[in-house]
Amino acid sequence: MTLPAVLIDGAGVVASGSLLDAVLAAGIDLPHLCKDDNLPPIGACRTCLVEADGRIVASCSVPAASVKEVNTSSERAIRLRGAVLALTAAMIAPGPGGGGPLGGTARATIEAHPVAGAVFARSTGESVDTTNPFFSFHEEECILCARCVTACQALQHISAIGMSGRARETRVTPGAGATFRDSICTSCGSCVAACPTTALRPKMELSP
């Protein structure tokens, strides 16, 4: 059996999984803030844009086998990725490092890619929830990528947190607008492990 191939930046690559999987497997760096290998594709951050058969698509939600030819570094793809990252960058308040194991991902991605235009300050919210004994949640660092919520709902099947509200009122929210302590959170840590910013921060340094 011959596996289908997709031409990525001129090189043939086995077309399995999503287009983003194929691009990353080819060793090409592409921003991806809401992709999580443990989770189904979310498709919310829209940073993994590429030009596929002449159309700009979010590569995480396109099967590689459905595409013939991909250009990851066309002028348009680079410019639009930069524009989405600029909108994302505006949501992250400058602050301390830390966070979970992936906590530096978003900031590193933004620094590594040209972010066009002025960066406006716009934070999701200002609340800080320190009620969980093991981690705290800092809304002003949240980019609403939904990885924490998807980990809680689709990986752990707990659903202690959800995405409440809509438009600019969208928030990551435990229970019915409760705190983590008053929700059904089991402190499993999956949300902290999935967070690409410092919105979800472990409280203790892990000792060996």
Partner: peptide, 18 residues
């Protein structure tokens, strides 16, 4: 269009109010 964004994806939620 800004108000009716469902809030899921960044370009629509962040871009349309702008």
């Amino acid at each position: 269009n800004a108000d009716e964004s469902c809030g899921k994806c960044t370009p629509c939620r962040e871009g349309s109010p702008r």
